[in-house]
């Protein structure tokens, strides 16, 4: 039972992080390698809002969420917008540069000190028993719930909303979409904002559960194989990829050797690349573009 709970929590963690990779790739074909750093920035923004609105968790969280949306838009406006029309490789390199800049900037602004945002929010993170046979923390449960809600809302948004339809259109045929009057840059900015928001949500929940430090950016990269395994252009794929990676990781830790845990996502990825290089739910056409 405890293993099952561990798998569910890890799946939710990877899923919440990896949907940010998918959102940007699906719309703009860019692999955002700054996603881990943006996720960490979201958590640090919560730290700041928690310090400003001390003891008011709802307001702090809302402000951090709003700021992360703004960060996503700013990244697009001031950096990725300039990459429009350039090669995909140039855009990917720009995200690597952004990641380095963000990590350095975070160390300068918030210092390299380990932090506990939960202290400033004035909330606790109690242990919760599940059916008497397993335990987890309240923040872990919240993370599972948030991942579920985010995915549900994203599915609904992409399938039924006008902006979701436009996002899909821009992802499939940007030129045609532009000719039909869709604001390409508006859609790209929206994708970056949503990606930064979901990443920040993951960063915030992880930091509430187990503190905040500069290693969080690496955790963001650990979730990247989950998106690749599922197929980079599929939200459903990201969910399935996260589940496969999480199951493999937890079982390897428990039954084989804990040392294999960091290699687990990449082992799964290699197997997937051999069997189905475009991922579980990706399309071959997307792979050609990569």
């Amino acid at each position: 039972m405890q293993l099952l709970v561990n798998i569910v929590v890890l799946t939710a963690t990877y899923a919440l992080i990896s949907c940010g990779y998918v959102l940007i790739y699906r719309v703009s074909r860019v692999l955002n390698l700054a996603h881990g750093a943006l996720m960490m920035l979201g958590a640090y923004l919560l730290l700041s809002t928690a310090l400003v609105f001390h003891g008011n968790p709802v307001l702090s969280l809302l402000m951090a969420a709003a700021l992360s949306l703004v960060v996503g838009i700013l990244v697009y406006v001031f950096l990725m917008h300039r990459m429009t029309g350039q090669s995909v490789l140039a855009a990917v390199l720009a995200t690597i540069a952004l990641s380095i800049m963000l990590r350095g900037g975070i160390a300068l602004v918030w210092s390299a000190q380990s932090r506990q945002p939960i202290q400033h929010l004035g909330v606790s993170n109690p242990t919760i028993a599940i059916l008497g046979a397993a335990h987890t923390s309240a923040c872990s449960l919240l993370l599972v719930a948030v991942a579920g809600v985010v995915y549900a809302l994203l599915f609904l948004f992409m399938r039924f909303s006008r902006w979701g339809l436009r996002m899909r259109a821009v992802g499939q045929a940007p030129l045609l979409a532009a000719q039909r009057g869709i604001s390409i840059h508006g859609i790209y900015a929206l994708a970056w904002a949503l990606s930064a928001f979901t990443g920040a949500a993951a960063g915030v929940l992880l930091s509430l559960n187990s503190g905040l430090d500069s290693t969080m950016a690496l955790v963001g990269l650990q979730a990247f194989p989950a998106a690749l395994v599922g197929g980079l252009d599929s939200l459903g794929g990201a969910l399935a990829g996260s589940l496969i990676v999480a199951v493999t990781e937890v079982l390897l830790i428990h039954y084989v050797d804990p040392l294999l845990s960091s290699a687990a996502p990449f082992l799964v990825l290699i197997v997937m690349l051999v069997i189905r290089p475009w991922g579980l739910f990706g399309t071959q056409e997307q792979l050609d573009r990569v």
């Binding site: 561990n6 929590v9 890890l10 963690t13 992080i17 690496l218 955790v219 650990q222 845990s261 960091s262």
Partner: peptide
């Protein structure tokens, strides 16, 4: 435990 681990719970479970 690898430094990049996303969750420490699996190790703690062991």
């Amino acid at each position: 435990i690898p430094p990049t681990t996303a969750s420490y719970t699996s190790f703690a479970t062991n």
